[in-house]
Structures are given as C-alpha cells and as structure tokens.
Simulated assay, not measured.
Amino acid sequence: MSAQIPTAPPSGAPTRSAPPDARTDVLRARSRGARSGRLGATLAGFATLMVLWWALTHPAVVDDPILRAVAPQHALPAVAGLFARGVLVPDALASLYRLLSGLLVAAVVGIPVGLLVGLNRRLEQATHSPFQFLRMISPLSWTPLAVAVFGIGHEPVVFLVAAAAVWPIVMNTVAGVRAMDPGHVLVARSMGATHREILLAVVLPSIRPALLTGFRVALGTAWIVLVPAEMLGVRSGLGYQVLNARDQLAYDQVMAVIVVIGALGFLLDTLSRRLLERRRAAPAARATRAPAGAAVG
C-alpha cells in the first residue's frame, strides 16, 4: 500500500484560516502589548523630565533663590496646598469653561466657512491669501481691541481663544472637503438627493476625520493662548492664578500652577487623540467584520 503524498488545494479552492476568535485574541494581545510599551515609554519620559527638573534647580547647580523655589520638592507640595485651600479647582473650571466656549464659537464659525470654501473652487482661490494673512497674526495681538469692544471679563478671553482655534478648524475642513471622493456626491445627486441631504449624509461623514484632526490642533492652540489671555484683568482662571502667585512672590505656587496647566493640557490632548484614533479605527473594524458576516449568510 503506497503512501499518499499530500497535494496543495486547487488555486480556486478556499483556504482555511484561523478562527475569528483566535484572530481576535491575537489582535487583543498585540494591542495590550502595544499599550504596555507606550505606557512604559511615557513613564520613562516623565521620569527623565522630573530628573532634569530637579537637577536644573538643585542648589549645587544654581544659586538663584527664585530658581531654587521652583524646584520639584517645593512646587509639588504647593500643588497639594493650593488644592487644599480650594483655589485650583474653581480656577481650572473657569479656564475650561472659557476654553470650551471659545472652541464652540470657533466651530460655529469655522465649519460653515470651511464647507463654503471647500465646496467652491473660486471662493477658495479668492480667500486663500487673505486667510493665510489673518492666520499668521498672533491671536494675542487682538487683545487691545478685544478689551475695548468686550470690556473686562469672560468675553475678551473667549474671543481670543476663538480667534486662535478657528483657523485649524477652517483649514482642516477645507482639506477634508478637497480630499473627499467626488463620486460620492455624484451618486447622491443621481439618486435625487437634495443639497441638505448631500451635506448631512455625504459631505459631513466624509470629512469627519479631518474635522477631528482640526479640533485636536485647535484645542492645543487654544489652550496655549488661554493662559496669557486670562492675564487681562479677569479674577479667575489659571492664568490669573499665575499672576496672583507672582504678585505674592510665591514662586513655588507659580510653578505649581504651571504644572497643573501642563497636566490639564496633556489630559485634554490625550482625550482628543484617543477620540481621533477610535473614530479612525471604527471604519476599519466594520470592514474586517463585513466579510465574516457575508460568509455566515
């Protein structure tokens, strides 16, 4: 009885692949490993930053009393002290309120403008140079006009934050519209869709990744502008708290507020990045599930 030699399946025959559950487990394991690697790298980076901070403010390196006062062994306890006094939480909430208000104004203005410019080639050519000119003006340059028009309070700060955040939103909206497949719009028109239906069902879903990227850039820019904008005479906010601590010559508290500003900015950027990654991963996940569903059917 002769031994049978296994032969390869015909070229058109389907090949066996790993079960979906096994593939899912492998992907989850890789994802956990990647997250662990990123977490380790992040912790190592922050540890290096702390060591440099401590070394650059050590009495053996500097003899300036102000620099010694902002050392981590003084600034970090000052953070806890400001929290215990009930100072940081109200100021952080005031800053976040102004930040979100400015971003809302920037979105209300920037998205429609970006859609109009992106959908009209002649309008884009006419507005390109003026937009680039206005975009290169520092938002803080508008401070005297903002105070003259809106007075002292929330309004000028919100205006300056919106002036900083509107351009990333406009530019990314235009880029998203320009990168959209025009065939989608043609198909929708051939099916009798109205302009409103095309905008809501075709254009906005297609430019969602570009919009989210624009919001992330706008968030970072607005947060950077917010702190100096809160030094205009308002009586709350993290920027005001920096000036208040400086006037008291409490430089450990100045550094404590700076640390809180950096921590909140890092947290906001991380949340926006996670949202952007999740939105980008959702279409890919649906695409990988579609063939399995079709095979079962």
Rank of each mutant, 00 (worst) to 15 (best):
L268E: 03
P291G: 07
R289A: 15
L267V: 14
L275I: 05
A290S: 14
P283I: 02
A290E: 13
D269G: 14
R278A: 15
L267A: 15
L267P: 02
F266L: 14
A290V: 02
V296I: 13
V257N: 01
V296R: 12
A292L: 15
A256Y: 04
V257C: 03
F266N: 09
A281L: 08
V257M: 02
Q253M: 08
I261G: 11
R274K: 09
I261E: 06
L271H: 06
A282T: 01
V257S: 05
R273S: 14
I261S: 09
A250W: 04
P291S: 10
V259E: 01
D269Y: 02
G265R: 04
V254P: 05
L276N: 11
L268V: 06
A290C: 06
A281K: 04
Q248P: 12
L275W: 05
R273T: 13
A287V: 00
L264K: 05
T270D: 13
G297L: 12
I258R: 04
Y251Q: 07
I258H: 01
V296L: 15
L249A: 13
T270C: 13
Q253K: 11
G293W: 10
A282S: 07
D269V: 10
A292H: 12
L275Y: 03
E277R: 09
R279K: 04
L249K: 05
